[in-house]
Nucleic acid binder design. Structure first.
Lengths: 333, 333
DNA sequence: CCAGAGTCAGAAATCGATTTCCGAAGAATA
DNA sequence: TATTCTTCGGAAATCGATTTCTGACTCTGG
C-alpha cells in the first residue's frame, strides 16, 4: 500500500500539502500541486478511505433495512435509493430484516458501530432497531410504514386512498360481497388499507362484515391460508381485495388449486404491482405503488437530513395508481 | 461518543485490557474482566468499527457488482449472497453496473479505496473493473460469466447444457423451425447458450440457419426488436428459444402486440425463470437457474478465498432445471 | 518605513481501536 | 535456592488520512 506519506516524500512536500491538493479544500502553489499530481500518478496512489472515515467520523455508507429484497416491492425501491446514493457519493448496504425485530436491531447496531452516514428503513412490527437509531440521532428515513412515537422523515404511499380506489373499482363492477385479506394488526399499512376497504364499502352503502376479513402475515403462505379460510365459509365471496403482492400470489395459488378462476368465479384486485403483470393472462388488476419513486424520495430526504440535521422532519406521501387489468372485469349478469 | 478510553478510565484499567476483554483474544483476570463489562454496560459503550478497520487494514464489507438488481435473476442471487454474508459477519454493498464498463470500473475503484474485504461480480463486456481488482489481488468471485485471461473463483451454470435441454424439449414437441434470440457476442453466457441451441439442432439432424438467430442486448427492448425482425421474415418460425428473462418478456410483448399466442402460433422456451411463472396462464416454460444457490455458492467461495488467499481458484458449475409449463406444449398436427 | 492583515507550507495533534513490547510477578524446573 | 518460563497488565506505537496550529513570508495602507 502506498500512503500519503509516500506521495509526500516523492514530491518533496508534506503530507498536509498532499491532502490539500487532493481534497482541493485550500489553495496550493500550482507548482507543488503539479508535483503532487505527478507523484500520485507515478505511484498509483489511492487514498485510504477507512483512515479518512476515522478522521471525519463518518462513512459514505447508507444502510437500507427492508424485510426482503426478493419482494419486488423492495427491489425496485432499493434501485431508486441506490441511484440517488450513487449520484450523491454514497454506497448502499443491503440489510434483509425478514420482518424479524431481532434482525432489525442487529442491523441497527451495525449501522452505529460502522458509523454509517444514514439509514433508510422499513420498520418491523416492534421497530426495535428504529428506536435505537432514533436515540442515537442517526439520520434516518422511514419508508412504507409509520412508527408510533418516532418523529422522523417518512415516505409513505396513500394507502387508504389506494385501497379505496381498488375496492371501489370492484364495487363499480357490480360486486358487493367483497372479501379482504390484509396484514397484521400492528402494521400501519395493513390497517390503513383495511380502512380504505371499509370506507369504500361504506361509500356504497354496503355493510361491513367481519367474517369477510382475514388478517394474515403479508406472506405467500399466509395469503394462501386466508383464502382457504374464506372459501371454506358457507357463502363464497364474489370478489377479493388483497393488501399486498405476496399474499395476492398465495391467494391466487389457492384459487388455482381449487379450480376457481378469476374473474369468472371470483374477481381479484391486489395491492402492489407484480413484475410483468400485464403480460400474462388473465392479467392481474393492481393498486400499484410508485416503488422506484419511493426509494428515490427516501434517498433525497436522507441526503437533506444529513446536510441539515436540525430541520424538522417531513413526511412525503406518494399516490398509488390503479392498474385495471383482467381479474377485475365487471360481474356478468 | 464514548470511547475505549472512557471505559478504561471508568473501570480502572488500561485501554489495552478493555480491548482484550472485548475481543477475548487473551486471558484477562476475571475480576478486571467483570469491571470492564460493568463499565461497558453503564456507559453504553459501542466500539468504533471504523477505527478497528483502520488498524486491521480491512473492513467487513463485501461488494456485489451486478448489472441490475431489478432483474429477478440478480435479486435472488443477491439474497443468497447476503444470507451467507450475514452468518459470516459481513455486510453487502449493492452496486448496479447497468452493463456499463465505466460504472463497473468506478465501483471497483470504490472497493479498493474503501478497503472492502471482497467482491462478487458479474462482469460487463469489457470487464474493466475486474482487471483492476485482479491486479490489486482483491478477493473476488466471478458469477454468471467467465472473463478471458482472469484466473479467479467462478460460479457458473451449465449454460450450454441448459440451452440444449430447452431446445431439445421443443424438438421433442415436434417443432423443427426453431428461432433463437441470444445476447451480445462478447458475453460468454450468450455464446454458451447459443452453442447449446446449435448442439440440440445438430443432435436432431436439423440444419442450423443463420437467419433464425438474432443477437440482442439481453434487455426487454432488445428482445422485442429481435422478435419483430424474426416475424418480419417471409416464413414465421414455429418455436422460439430466448436466452434470458428480460428478452423473453420483450419477445412475448411483441407477440401479444401482433396478436400471436403461445404455444398455438409459436411455442416459447425462455432461459431464466420469472417470478410466479406458473401462476399465470399460459405459463412460461423456462430453463431455470438456481439463482439463490448461485449467490450462496459465491458467498462461500469468497469466504474461503479470504481465509486462504493462496489456494488455486476453483470454478463451480451448477445445473439448470427445465421447468416445463404451457408455452412449449407439443405441436398440434 | 512600519504595523497589521493575509496567505500558505509544514509540524504535530488527532480520530479510536489494536497490538507489540516491556516489565513484574508467580509458576515450574533443576 | 537459583534459574528459566509463563502469564498478564500497561505504556506506547501503530494504522493513514485530516486539520489545527505555528511561523515565515508577502502585501497593503497609514
Amino acid at each position: 500500500m502506498t500512503t500519503i506519506y509516500d506521495v509526500a516524500r516523492r514530491s518533496g512536500v508534506s503530507p498536509a500539502t498532499v491532502s490539500r491538493v487532493l481534497s482541493g479544500r485550500r489553495n496550493v502553489d500550482p507548482e507543488l500541486s503539479e508535483k503532487v499530481r505527478a507523484a500520485v500518478a507515478e505511484l498509483g496512489y489511492r487514498p485510504n478511505g477507512v483512515a479518512r472515515n476515522l478522521r471525519r467520523a463518518s462513512t459514505n455508507l447508507w444502510a437500507v433495512v427492508i424485510s426482503d429484497i426478493e419482494n419486488p416491492f423492495f427491489t425496485s425501491l432499493v434501485r431508486g435509493l441506490e441511484d440517488v446514493a450513487q449520484t450523491e457519493g454514497y454506497h448502499v448496504v443491503l440489510c434483509n430484516s425478514d420482518e424479524d425485530p431481532a434482525k432489525e436491531a442487529a442491523y441497527a447496531s451495525a449501522v452505529l458501530t460502522e458509523q454509517m452516514a444514514g439509514v433508510v428503513i422499513s420498520p418491523t412490527s416492534t421497530a426495535e432497531g428504529v428506536q435505537q437509531l432514533d436515540e442515537a440521532k442517526t439520520p434516518m428515513v422511514l419508508i412504507d410504514r409509520r412508527v408510533e412515537g418516532i418523529e422522523a422523515d417518512t415516505v409513505l404511499v396513500d394507502n387508504e386512498h389506494g385501497a379505496f380506489e381498488g375496492v371501489n373499482h370492484l364495487i363499480e363492477g357490480g360486486y358487493r360481497r367483497i372479501a379482504c385479506i390484509t396484514g397484521p394488526r400492528r402494521v400501519s399499512t395493513a390497517m390503513d388499507r383495511l380502512a380504505g376497504y371499509r370506507s369504500a364499502l361504506r361509500g356504497a352503502g354496503i355493510r361491513f362484515q367481519k367474517d369477510l376479513v382475514r388478517h394474515a402475515d403479508f406472506r405467500e403462505a399466509g395469503g394462501f391460508a386466508a383464502m382457504e379460510s374464506l372459501l371454506d365459509q358457507p357463502e363464497r365471496p364474489e370478489a377479493l381485495f388483497v393488501t399486498n403482492n405476496l399474499m395476492t400470489v398465495g391467494a391466487l395459488e389457492c384459487l388455482a388449486k381449487r379450480g376457481l378462476r378469476a374473474p369468472d368465479d371470483i374477481a381479484v384486485v391486489g395491492f402492489d404491482d407484480i413484475p410483468w403483470a400485464d403480460l400474462v393472462v388473465p392479467s392481474l388488476t393492481t393498486v400499484a405503488q410508485p416503488t422506484y419513486e419511493l426509494g428515490r424520495t427516501a434517498g433525497l430526504l436522507l441526503k437533506d437530513r444529513i446536510a441539515s440535521p436540525g430541520r424538522p422532519p417531513s413526511t412525503v406521501t406518494l399516490r398509488t395508481e390503479l392498474h385495471i387489468r383482467a381479474t377485475s372485469a365487471p360481474k356478468k349478469p
